[in-house]
Design a protein around this nucleic acid. Structure first.
Lengths: 195, 195
DNA sequence: ACGTCTCCATACTTCTGAGTATGGTAAATG
DNA sequence: CATTTACCATACTCAGAAGTATGGAGACGT
């Protein structure tokens, strides 16, 4: 089995999934606009000819890549965050999750910068909706009434999005510094009150 | 005097300022990437030939337009918000300012989506820094110690940026609805505590 | 009246990136 | 062994947008 499966990197030929994965890496690095077929092909060590065998066009690649990312993000929300029973701790880990899962995270950040893109727009809507409901549910479990939970969820997610934005602008203290930790503590204390 | 100044719209020839203004309108509408010379010229009712008389190139136009916008935003911060003596009211009006000043506001929103643009990046840094210091100062006046004021300012501005993002994704209740007002009240109560 | 300066139109060139046409090669398959 | 199939290279076309070259028309001073 070990030999049959092997490492994908050692495969001689490419699969559509490989292209989609590399596209996501590119999106995370330079945004969706930077996903050019020829550049991508160079990174894969091949030429355009290969690409257009696997995909009909660029749009198709983006579609598949985004679907792949959305699925990954969805299970991530369920497993990584859904597993935590204490709602307060669940909310805290939502913020702290920024450090880990860098790729997935940077992809989302890049996608937010392309919210006017026709293929990205509906995706962002679904993802934000899903995450906010998740947060809202946690607040409800803590004991807030529906209205209050809804508002808190929106504010919490806004703070998260704004943090991403400031991060892109290099306006945020470096992760894993004591300055960052102090700020994080403040955020959590403000948005997730004890009662 | 009234005749000498006249309305700019009635002028037979265009000035560089007219181009810069229209560029900002375009940025607000479709983002900085959409600022194409020929499209802009069509909107002005002329052709490229005119543009390249007023500007050396596209980059130069963007530079001037962004400078113009930054100045406008700076004085706006001083007059509109600096004039309010009560720091709490000053903070509240910062949020509520979203409705008015639509153009300036949408320009900023669009620029945030292009934070990787070499000409936009330093601008965003300056603007965010300036605004956050403004907010920080208000929190300090209320009575928070420097550390606390800094954190609150960052969180407040993050919430603001996140709100812009959600707005772009149509994930926010329509302005001037009672749903929106309820949320706004919640935000203000959470971020600007009474003591 | 004449030349100059300002502002703009037209017709190019250039570049970049998407997409196509076609042919080549290595592995699988009968 | 021969042939198909999967995967990729090469060499095109095509469209959009930036920038250039050049010429024209009106205002304006002298």
């Amino acid at each position: 089995m070990t030999q049959a499966v092997a490492k994908k990197k050692e495969r001689s030929t490419l699969s559509a999934g490989d292209w989609e994965q590399q596209a996501l890496v590119l999106i995370a690095e330079k945004g969706i606009r930077a996903v050019a077929v020829e550049l991508l092909a160079r990174r894969m060590g091949v030429t355009k000819g290969s690409f257009y065998w696997h995909f009909q066009n660029r749009e198709s690649l983006l579609e598949q890549s985004l679907i792949r990312w959305e699925k990954h993000d969805e299970v991530n929300l369920q497993t990584s965050l859904g597993a935590i029973e204490d709602p307060r701790e669940r909310l805290r880990s939502f913020f702290r999750r920024t450090g880990r899962e860098k790729l997935t995270h940077n992809v989302y950040s890049s996608l937010c910068m392309a919210s006017d893109h026709p293929q990205v727009e509906p995706l962002l809507e679904r993802v934000a909706e899903r995450r906010m409901r998740h947060i809202e549910k946690a607040f409800a479990e803590i004991g807030f009434d529906p209205q209050e939970a809804s508002h808190r969820a929106r504010l919490t997610y806004s703070a998260y999005l704004g943090f991403l934005q400031l991060q892109k602008q290099h306006q945020t203290p470096s992760l894993s510094s004591e300055e960052f930790e102090a700020y994080m503590t403040h955020v959590i204390a403000t948005l997730i009150p004890e009662k």
